[in-house]
């Protein structure tokens, strides 16, 4: 009981500190309810958001929800109470936002969704959603591989966490390309939970199950971390990643550029951590001239190959 009490006290103190920050005149104040810091990409998103806000002279208040919707709802409410000019929300789940967003709307505070959209009947509850198209990411990765191999390739797939939307969508996009290329086949698919450890373990078993890896032309991983695990598994089996087995993945985190620089990975599709930039641009325009942005701002899904790996690695190192 005492420990809990202590934690609450610390939490309250932190809240008071953040809410007590000075309100600069004429400076736009934006509250950002971030999901948490569960991955390197997420941490980078937070970091980029700070940088992008600074660039535009915006005061950004970040609240970490530790993967809990109730914390996010609480954060949004406290932003409303503080009278911020706008709210950025990276929703942890798709449903259950109507009530709190209505409160924001009544307070005339525009809300922009980041990196995931929500399910609601009333689309006027948010200004716009800045997200990447995860289906498209899978498709881009597949198209690169189809072109590279002339449409003939036995692929093993490392899925993300079963049931998560990026896993479903990145599989869907890739499958569209496989369906269009009769020479392409997914011979094995398993979940690697988006982690390096599981990616490595699953790849080890794929290699064994497919004749020591001889039947595998490429591995398609739903994120870079699993690809990095897979690369180690391929090396330990005495094969050359990037050559004997091509490595295709999504996210574009720094470590995959390092692998590409070493010739061990072939391609990655970027999921940009810069969601806040376009969001803040849309907000500034809306506040200044009342310009209504599109309901969906899609971020770019850029393809990166080893040629630019070194430069990209240096560029990203700081963010992650």
């Amino acid at each position: 009981m005492k420990a809990r009490h202590l934690l609450t006290t610390i939490g309250m103190a932190a809240l008071m500190l953040s809410s007590g920050a000075a309100y600069a005149q004429n400076k736009m104040t934006v509250g950002f309810s971030q999901v948490g810091s569960e991955s390197g990409w997420r941490a980078a998103e937070t970091k980029v958001s700070k940088i992008e806000a600074e660039k535009r002279g915006i005061d950004l208040k970040i609240s970490d929800a530790q993967q809990k919707q109730e914390n996010q709802i609480r954060a949004v409410r406290s932003f409303i109470a503080q009278g911020v000019d706008a709210i950025l929300l990276a929703p942890v789940v798709a449903t259950g936002w109507d009530a709190v967003l209505k409160e924001a709307k009544e307070a005339k505070i525009p809300v922009v969704l980041l990196d995931r959209s929500i399910e609601t009947k009333d689309e006027s509850l948010y200004l716009t959603a800045v997200t990447s198209d995860t289906v498209y990411e899978g498709k881009v990765a597949g198209e690169w591989l189809a072109k590279e191999t002339g449409g003939k390739c036995n692929v093993v797939e490392l899925q993300g966490t079963v049931g998560s939307s990026p896993a479903i969508n990145r599989k869907k996009g890739f499958d569209q390309v496989v369906a269009a290329n009769p020479g392409m086949k997914i011979i094995r698919t398993q979940s690697g939970d988006f982690t390096r450890t599981k990616g490595k373990e699953v790849m080890e078993s794929f290699i064994k199950a497919e004749g020591g890896g001889k039947n595998i032309c490429a591995v398609y991983a739903h994120n870079d971390d699993m690809a990095i695990g897979a690369i180690q598994a391929i090396k330990e089996a005495g094969l050359k990643p990037g050559k004997d087995i091509k490595v295709v993945s999504i996210d574009a985190v720094p470590d995959i550029f390092k692998a590409m620089g070493d010739g061990e990975a072939n391609v990655t599709v970027e999921l940009t951590p810069n969601m806040a930039g376009p969001a803040l641009d849309a907000l500034t325009a809306y506040k200044k001239n009342g310009t209504m942005p599109k309901k969906w701002i899609q971020t770019e899904s850029k393809v990166y190959t080893p040629e630019t790996a070194k430069a990209e690695y240096e560029k990203r190192k700081e963010l992650y």
């Binding site: 569960e38 991955s39 988006f194 390096r196 450890t197 490595k200 990095i228 180690q232």
Partner: peptide, 16 residues
């Protein structure tokens, strides 16, 4: 062991 295995410490997922 798991850290050495992937040559990296994944604080979010190690031992999860």
């Amino acid at each position: 062991i798991v850290t050495a295995d992937i040559r990296g410490a994944d604080a979010n997922n190690a031992g999860l």
